[in-house]
Design a protein around this nucleic acid. Structure first.
Lengths: 345, 345
DNA sequence: ATGAAAGCGCTAACAA
DNA sequence: TTGTTAGCGCTTTCAT
């Protein structure tokens, strides 16, 4: 059997015995219509299971689609899930939906995705830029009225609204805490690539704190990894140094998993840890994990608000909004520098 | 200044001095075109920053939109992020994108979302059904060729492809493990509402295991909560019973957070725990958390594969696919029933 | 209060 | 190899 064709406005019109325009009027509460016609039209709509074709509507009206295009590196990363949730919360009231795609942090994929979004005439484009991606192709659409917002990292080749976390200050605060606890050798386990904006900023904050504490920067105390497994290995290497760190800064949620896992495996309860990003069971670890919490939902909410303002005609200068991070002390960052006392300068 | 209008196919055609159809041919690699024209067309496209309007295309071609509509309860829940990621992985090759919306487990919102998706003519509709939601309105579109897949829970009022986890067997295996360890009083901390499919199934598995182990079902050992905080309180109540459980089954990831948090707070290392859903730091807890791991990504991948098969014309009977869960022993489920020996029958 | 005709941006079908 | 015409499903404009 051939599948039943989806009914169109014309089908409804024919069924009722009126013109298509009349049906359109009833459904959109456009011009006037008699109670009688209205009733019969609605009956036919229900009867036929008619669904107006929103694409056809968009075409005719000429306006943009009712979607927000969002490019994230990884759909399964809870951080970006929270961002998406924040965006949705804000744009939902305006009838906008989320069209999402993941770039895998690949500039090529990111470009393909943004092009597709443009072709789909999204109302708003939001991007978590990949390292090495260029965004010059977004200039014209933006000039034509489509808001573009960068999230979590600045974009390149386009000046537009941007929402990021206070990465540098957060890292500095966390490391300062460790220094205040007496630690003098503090390691940093960061993610890759090292050119990644958040990595660079957190690294910068780490170095600032060291400088402020009068501690030397020792590049041997800095390790990097892609995955939790790599992070665990990196942690092991750091602890095997002749003059090992007594405290660690974990650079993001994945790095933290590796650091914690290795410390647990090695039974090293003496190593202080401050971690970037809060994690679900952080407070149930022993000791509890001291974190620099980001606020991904607020990143999304802010991005959404800015976009709506732009859609409402705000033509002011592009702004960069920095969402504060928050140090949550839970124990692991408050461990005294016992080893530090022994092996320090 | 009035924003520049986005260029259309006609604009490109005029700029090059050819017909619209020729431009269309070049861009879609439809019929033949001379190398010369092709070059000039592409130049003009780049020059004007032309982006074909995909919605107009869809309308003309008559086919569905190139999107997969996905309704999940909560975008920020990593479980559904993983599901989404699995779907995307599969449908990406076919040029399909994810259009997502969250229902907050509200049947009304779910209905609105699915209606919007229908109006947008999504190629595929995937839904994690809310308790109490009805899906009869999806019958016609499905008959008209739009695949509908239920994920994680069965839908209602529509027979269609469904992908779920082996909730019952998983729970049974987990509880059997505890019984094998000598536990005779085993509590269950489940989520709400109790009518939720996954909750019911896991509860059923819990009871099956008790029965198989020759243990009585004691409803006082069953507690429920919405949030981790509630789960923590529920756990405390269970442990305060005159004849308290010596082991607990945590019903999902949020419940687990509460259980673990309360046990840590109370310093109860003697309570055995098996938890539904794996969690990032489960192995770093002390003892490591024994879990019944679901495979949300595979849920998504399977749903995607089924949908593609349907799009390719598969008209076979609707199938229900059950994705296995996997018990991962890490210590917390292997604790001996010390209290059980003392206070058991 | 309702309808007829034109057109949104694009492509199928048929010429040339 | 290229162009012309018509039409997707809807809404705008202008009549009636």
């Amino acid at each position: 059997m051939t599948p039943a064709r989806r009914p169109t406005l014309a089908d409804v019109a024919k069924a009722v015995g009126v013109s298509a325009k009349t049906v359109s009027r009833v459904l959109n509460e456009d011009g006037p219509s008699s109670a009688e016609t209205r009733k019969r039209v609605l009956a036919a709509v229900a009867e036929l299971g008619f669904q107006p074709n929103l694409m056809a509507r968009s075409i005719r009206v000429g306006g943009p689609d009712t979607t927000v295009g969002l490019v994230v590196p990884d759909l399964s990363n809870p951080f970006f899930g929270a961002v998406a949730s924040g965006i949705e919360e804000v744009v939902d009231d305006r009838g906008l939906m989320l069209l999402m795609g993941s770039s895998q942090d690949d500039p090529g994929r990111e470009h393909t995705l943004t092009q597709t979004f443009l072709a789909r005439r999204v109302s708003v484009l939001m991007v978590v830029p990949s390292v090495g991606a260029d965004h010059t192709h977004l200039k014209a659409p933006r000039a034509a009225g489509m808001p573009v917002v960068f999230i979590d990292r600045p974009g390149s080749g386009l000046t537009t609204d941007t929402v990021v976390s206070s990465n540098r200050a957060g890292a500095r605060t966390g490391v300062a805490r460790l220094i205040a606890g007496g630690h003098r050798r503090i390691g940093f386990v960061g993610d890759l690539p090292t050119r990644l904006y958040t990595r660079r900023e957190r690294m910068a904050g780490y170095r600032e704190a060291l400088a402020e504490g009068g501690l030397p920067y020792d590049r041997r105390l800095v390790a990097s990894a892609h995955h939790p497994e790599g992070s665990a290995e990196a942690t092991a290497r750091l602890l095997a140094l002749p003059d090992p760190p007594t405290a660690l800064l974990a650079g993001n949620n994945f790095m933290t998993l590796g650091v914690i896992s290795e410390l647990a495996r090695a039974g090293r309860k003496d190593i202080a840890v401050v971690a970037f990003d809060d994690l679900p069971m952080a407070e149930s670890l022993q000791p509890g994990l001291t974190v620099i919490a980001q606020d991904p939902k607020t990143l999304g909410v802010s991005a959404g608000r800015i976009a709506l303002r732009r859609m409402d005609g705000d033509r002011s200068r592009a702004q960069t909004l920095t969402i504060p991070t928050r140090l949550i002390p839970r124990g692991s960052g408050e461990l005294p520098a016992l080893n530090g006392v022994r092996s320090g300068v």
